[in-house]
Amino acid sequence: MVSNRCKMAVKEELKKLKLHFMVVDLGEVEIMENISMDQRQLLKAALLDSGLELMDDKKSMLIEKIKNVIIEMVHHSTEPIKVNFSDYLSQKLSHDYTYLSNLFSEVQGTTIEQFIISHKTERIKELIIYGELNITEIAWKMNYSSVAHLSSQFKKVTGLSPSHFKQLKDKRRNPIEEIGNVND
């Protein structure tokens, strides 16, 4: 789950199956009762119809948690991003960063760093489109050491400078669910 819309879809499916939940958060659900295999299969099918997936294995769940922590920090944090992502992920997920990084690369076919850069680029596009902040303020908010660093990374990902992107009439943005996927 990567958005509030996903959380709402999951809650709706749980209600339809008359399953009571304590928590529906990004990447995890805590159900009050034990569910039967039939209920699990119904839930799995319903989630697939909504474009979501029920994950059973620990590694897949950990990958989802990594993605959700990154998405939460990049897209939903109101405070400037002023922490080291590797330390933050290790602390938040209670795993050594090297383990998280190797697992993520093995399963996703991209590095955590590239996933973060993809999301930061998308967030920068959003901030440029809204026009509330200038590029210097965006660089500060997104924890870049300089406007030049932001511009360089943005151009490497999009092929455009931030100022050229701002001038485009048709500003292409990607849904959060599609950012950082190797198949893009």
Rank of each mutant, 00 (worst) to 15 (best):
G159I: 10
H119R: 03
D25A: 09
I71V: 13
L168D: 13
L14K: 05
L47K: 02
H75Q: 02
H75R: 03
V24C: 09
Y97C: 01
M1A: 12
K15Q: 06
F104R: 00
D57G: 05
D87P: 12
R172C: 04
H95T: 04
L26R: 07
E178R: 08
S50Y: 04
L42C: 12
S86H: 01
E122R: 07
L52W: 12
V157E: 14
M32I: 00
G131F: 12
E28S: 04
N84G: 03
Q108K: 12
N183W: 14
N84Q: 14
L127V: 07
N174I: 14
L26K: 06
K120Q: 08
T110L: 03
E126Y: 13
Y99C: 00
D38P: 15
I179H: 08
I81Q: 08
G109E: 07
L150E: 05
E72D: 12
A148I: 11
Y97M: 01
S118H: 11
E53A: 09
Y144V: 05
S161M: 15
M142T: 02
L17N: 03
M1N: 08
L42T: 05
N134H: 08
H149S: 11
L19E: 08
Y97I: 10
Q167G: 06
L47A: 02
N143G: 14
S86L: 00
L42Y: 15
K82Y: 03
S118Q: 11
V74N: 01
R123C: 00
D57A: 02
L47G: 01
K59T: 10
M142S: 02
P162G: 01
V69A: 11
S145I: 15
V83D: 04
K82S: 10
E113F: 07
E122K: 09
A139W: 06
L43H: 08
N134T: 07
G27W: 09
R173V: 12
L42K: 15
I128G: 07
K92I: 04
K82I: 10
L42D: 14
F154V: 01
N68M: 11
S94L: 05
L62T: 10
N34S: 00
K141P: 08
G27M: 04
R40P: 01
A46M: 10
N134A: 05
P175K: 12
